[in-house]
Amino acid sequence: MRFLENDRTGRVALVLLLIAVGAFGALLLLDLLTIGPGYPPPEALQKWYIPQPRYEYAENGSVVVNRTIEGDIVLLGDIKERCSSLFPDLSRYCSHAVYLDTVSSDRYLIVNWYFDDNADFLQAEEVLCSRLRSSGNVTSAELILPNKPDISPDEPITGLITVTKYESEASSGYFVAVEKPLSPEHSDYFIVYYGVLGPADLLDHTDALEELMLRSYSLRGARPLASCS
């Protein structure tokens, strides 16, 4: 009798084990079959906040580049996958681009530093602030960004962001830091600079810079550089 009881217990255990293995296998299969996340590689995030040109098909099927970003502002040349000489090389994933206002001939610079490590990001903020203070005037400012024209009517009309304002002879503009903008589950950190090249009154160019910010990836949650505050 005791032998039979042990035998039955063993069989139940075996069945439970098979069910567990089956369930685990099914979950594994389901996990393998899911699509995504398809996360962008660092080489793409390197220029994530830099407004990119549009690519379209011409009538003959060839691909043409439309460099108009907004209104009279066009991308000048290509997006350069290296840091701008105006600012320090804070990250190996750094890009910059220059834009031209074809009416006023003003030139705008956007620099994107990408970090996949929080400690590197924080250290870069410190280094950058130190360099900015030694080369120009650093203060805090608030910008009111109107929402993108095609935004949902339910969304708030404007968004307020606090930024680090930088003014120098070589370039003046706004720095923002953005943490995990793609997903809270993924460690991505960005420092982005939107500025006008050459000596200029920054207020005269804020509208154009805000337009460029709106043509960038979402700045929701952007903040000023921590070390500059």
Binding site: T34, I35, S183, E185, H186
Partner: peptide, 9 residues
């Protein structure tokens, strides 16, 4: 879509 960004096709 999951918080990580995966979707059951």
């Amino acid at each position: 879509t999951t918080p990580e960004g995966s979707t059951w096709p």
